[in-house]
Design a protein around this nucleic acid. Structure first.
Lengths: 141, 141
DNA sequence: TATTGTCAACGAAATGTTTCGTAGTTTGAT
DNA sequence: ATCAAACTACGAAACATTTCGTTGACAATA
């Protein structure tokens, strides 16, 4: 089984984010998530227009293209088709982060971490979480 | 003075990385760096073709476009023009990281840090560096 | 049943990015 | 002085992305 190396564009990523947020099974400890249903074009359009003005058919077209690319799946059993992400958020974030580290930081994760801490200051609790993760990583070497 | 919010494309970023590496003054503690000279089209082309095949004039054109966009500056006093980054690496990385956090991680720096640590495992020394930075950040709250 | 609203499909324009061929200039050897 | 090599500039093709108008199907309602 081959992995699809298709990277979403920024617009596509925005839509994926909305779909991931709509996903009814965000919890549960196993990786895949997915409570199946998820969003219609109208729902996605409603969310997206909170941030920037864009036509309904633009969003529709985007989702159709994303279906072609294999970024989303859809259920056509109802008149209003229901779209859902083809890949879980975590997996996509991992791929994007890997690419980003390579293109913007010459492969140095450390540099990115430092930049991230400086760019959008995490709260004290978040810092504590990060520290905890570091402990784990050093512990289980 | 207004800041130019021009974001380099991936190809442009690749070229910028090469120019930053060529910059003769990477050290010194003040932010701006820049020992002025830096690279010719031929140098950039030579570097870039180590990674992927691309024509000389393609690189030339890219650099001309980047000049238009204000991403690079050039010295035309010699026949072979010499290009150098208009913005220091650190500043660009900060901007890109900010954007990336917002588009891929809904604004959560913490999430990105965690992802980065998982995506490209830093070495033990690097982890120590990160831990040191965390100490500083929590110390000077 | 006629009208109005909601939807998917499609085509195509507008825009942005990447690529390279060609032309013309300058430099350095024969 | 001729020729070849090394450059820049420019135009335009090839792609990819984003945007939306129009069409036709279907559904709800008057």
């Amino acid at each position: 089984m081959a992995r699809q190396p298709i990277t979403p564009t920024d617009s596509e990523l925005q839509i994926l984010s909305i779909l991931w947020d709509l996903d009814p099974a965000p919890g549960s400890s196993h990786g895949s998530s997915h409570g199946l249903p998820t969003g219609t074009v109208r729902q996605v359009h409603a969310e997206i227009t909170k941030h920037r003005p864009v036509g309904y058919t633009t969003v529709l077209k985007l989702l159709q293209i994303m279906l072609d690319k294999g970024l989303v799946l859809r259920d056509e059993s109802e008149r209003s088709h229901v779209y859902r992400p083809a890949v879980p958020r975590a997996k996509t974030q991992r791929r994007l982060t890997r690419d980003f580290i390579d293109t913007a930081f010459s492969g140095s994760a450390k540099s990115l971490v430092i930049e991230a801490l400086g760019a959008r200051r995490p709260s004290a609790e978040e810092l504590a979480d990060i520290r905890r993760l570091l402990d784990e990583m050093e512990g289980s070497k």
